[in-house]
Each structure stands twice: as C-alpha cells, then as structure tokens.
Simulated scan of single mutants.
Amino acid sequence: MAEREASKIVQKARELRTKRVREARDEAKKEIDAYRKAKEEEFKKFEAEHTKGNKQAEDEANKEADGKIKEIQASGKKNQADVVADLLRGVLDVKPVPPSAE
C-alpha cells in the first residue's frame, strides 16, 4: 500500500515537472517570437530610413547623368557636320609627301 502511494506521489511529481517544462518552453518560444518580431520591425525601420537617402542620391545621380548625356548629344549634333567634313577632307585631299632621307 505504501509503495502504491509512493508511486502515485512520484508520478504526480513527474507530471508536474513535465508540465512546468512544457510551460517554460512555451513561454520561452513566446519571448523569442516577440524579440524576433521587435528586431524585424527595428530592421525594417532602419532599412527604410537608410534606403531613402540612397534612393535620393541615386535619383540625383541619374538626373545629372541624363543632363550630361543630353549635353553631349546636343554638342555632337551641333558639330556633326564639321566633324564629317574634316574626316572627308582628310581622306579625299591626299597630299603625298616623299620620305625624307635622314
């Protein structure tokens, strides 16, 4: 009879310990999830703040590059006739020069 009582007490202690371990594990999971969520939100906020500056710098660089490209194209169109004429003159107006005896 005493053995049965002792066995019941041991069984209850095991069940209680198992229950406490499960509760502790569940609580730890909740804390980890909450921490992870907080850190993800913090990272998203950080990322949003810092990508704004990069986006603005990128937009400014693109605008500046577009301006330079348009300027180069305009200059090319303006001087295109002169460049073609110079090239044609250099190819068609051949002036042979005898080699010098040095």
Rank of each mutant, 00 (worst) to 15 (best):
E3F: 10
A28R: 15
L88Y: 00
A57G: 03
F43E: 04
G67A: 11
K45H: 03
E41F: 08
A85L: 07
I69L: 14
S7Q: 15
R17W: 13
R89I: 05
K55N: 11
F43D: 02
K44F: 11
G53Q: 12
I32L: 11
K70I: 06
M1R: 07
N62H: 07
E102A: 05
K70A: 12
K8P: 00
A74R: 05
A81C: 01
K77Y: 09
V10W: 02
E58L: 11
G67M: 09
K95P: 00
H50K: 15
R20I: 04
P99E: 09
D59Y: 06
R22P: 00
K19C: 09
T51F: 09
E49W: 08
V84E: 14
A81S: 08
D86E: 11
A24T: 13
E49N: 12
Q56R: 13
A2Y: 07
K39H: 04
L88T: 07
V94K: 04
A57K: 15
P98M: 12
K37P: 01
D82R: 07
I69V: 13
D93H: 04
A13K: 11
E31P: 00
E27W: 10
K12N: 13
E5Y: 09
P98A: 15
V97K: 09
E102V: 03
E47C: 03
A34S: 07
S100E: 06
I69T: 06
E15L: 05
L92K: 09
K37E: 15
R4C: 14
L16G: 03
A85W: 02
R25F: 10
K63C: 02
V21A: 10
V94F: 02
L16A: 14
K30P: 01
R14K: 11
P98D: 15
